[in-house]
Design a binder for these strands. Structure first.
Lengths: 198, 198
DNA sequence: TGCAAATCGGAGCGCTGCTCCGTATCGTGA
DNA sequence: TCACGATACGGAGCAGCGCTCCGATTTGCA
């Protein structure tokens, strides 16, 4: 299940240029992603970094691996964001804030939301990484809120997470679309303690 | 604003092969879309129809135009589906049924939901066609339900429509994802007469 | 300093969407 | 019935993509 785990430095026996180039690549990729979005051509990243195509693909076998590596620390920040209980907040409020933070993250990175749900080969790695890192967090938040009686308990964290991600799709393509409102609507649906009237 | 309006047969002055080939193309495209999804290569449709690439692009300047043409009658059916009030139903129930029907339509056509929100050039035509045909219907359903006091009135039909479409994305790529449940959750959020607790 | 092993670079492959123009077909007027 | 101009067809070809492959280059140890 290893995606791009930056194998834990086998024992310092790495050549010096390898570490140097990896950093160059990450910096270049980050810059290009901001400028041209997640879908930027790999050649563009190669040009930006001053390295060759082969070098990129040896470090990151797949584009998704590169994307994951670039956003890893932001993913980490998101994963621990639910750990500071922030005094007197209802569990629902904590959940709500985290969901908005997650949405902001997706929207900020051009095309990330789209890529996450793309069926293009190779992008399952991206999807898997997000699920692995964030699903436990969201699951815990949902359960806490449900236990406190704030929200219903019959919503699976997996569905909910993909739904949030999906709702973020198109904010750049269709400027009139207000994803935030729809996310709030989904959150509102959560507060019903019983299923919607059939 | 004309997308692929199948110009109303200028006056029968069309060569006979033109009409024949257009039908061939529509049939072939429909078959290929079912078999390989909306994203099927154009060459595949050419092969299936026995016609050449040039013929396809002369009839349908863009892939989106072809897609619109193939699904047009189903779009029409959806647009009038809200017209039979169906006896003793609450306006919310009518809205709910229509939304599910819309979602089923999107899910059934492989990749349609994804294409609708794609930022690929040319697919705005597809998006526009959907908005033009279906937005008035959804708007009317939302307003009726709100007037009857079933649902809140501060939700824009445009946002809601895109949200439904977005929630349908990924049902094929991620078999575990239950889009239906998330659509129900969104509908549940609608029944709150006041905004969610802040 | 020399040399094997590791790494790099970019030409090249296969696949797209879409264009362009020589060729084939159609329908009309003689 | 036939011939000819207008119209439509077909598919080679272009540009751009992700990714591979292997000869050239660099590195670090002895």
């Amino acid at each position: 299940m290893s995606t791009a785990d930056t194998p834990p430095a086998p024992s310092g026996r790495q050549r010096s240029d390898v570490r140097r180039n990896e950093q160059k690549l990450l910096d270049a990729a980050a810059a290009v992603f901001v400028r041209m979005g997640i879908d930027a051509p790999v050649r563009e990243i190669a040009a930006e970094s001053g390295l060759g195509m082969g070098t990129i693909y040896r470090h990151f076998p797949t584009r998704a691996d590169l994307v994951v590596a670039v956003f890893r620390h932001q993913l980490d920040a998101l994963a621990v964001a639910a750990d500071n209980p922030a005094a007197a907040d209802t569990p629902y409020e904590v959940l709500r804030r985290w969901v908005h933070r997650f949405a902001d993250f997706l929207v900020t990175k051009h095309g990330l939301a789209e890529a996450l749900h793309s069926d293009q080969a190779g992008f399952e790695a991206l999807h898997n990484e997000f699920v692995e890192r964030l699903l436990p967090v969201l699951d815990q938040l949902l359960k806490a809120s449900a236990s406190a009686g704030c929200t219903r308990a019959d919503v699976r964290a997996y569905d909910f997470m993909l739904a949030i991600g999906n709702l973020c799709i198109g904010v750049e393509t269709f400027p009139d679309y207000q994803a935030r409102r729809m996310i709030d609507l989904l959150l509102a649906g959560l507060t019903q303690t019983a299923p919607a009237p059939s």
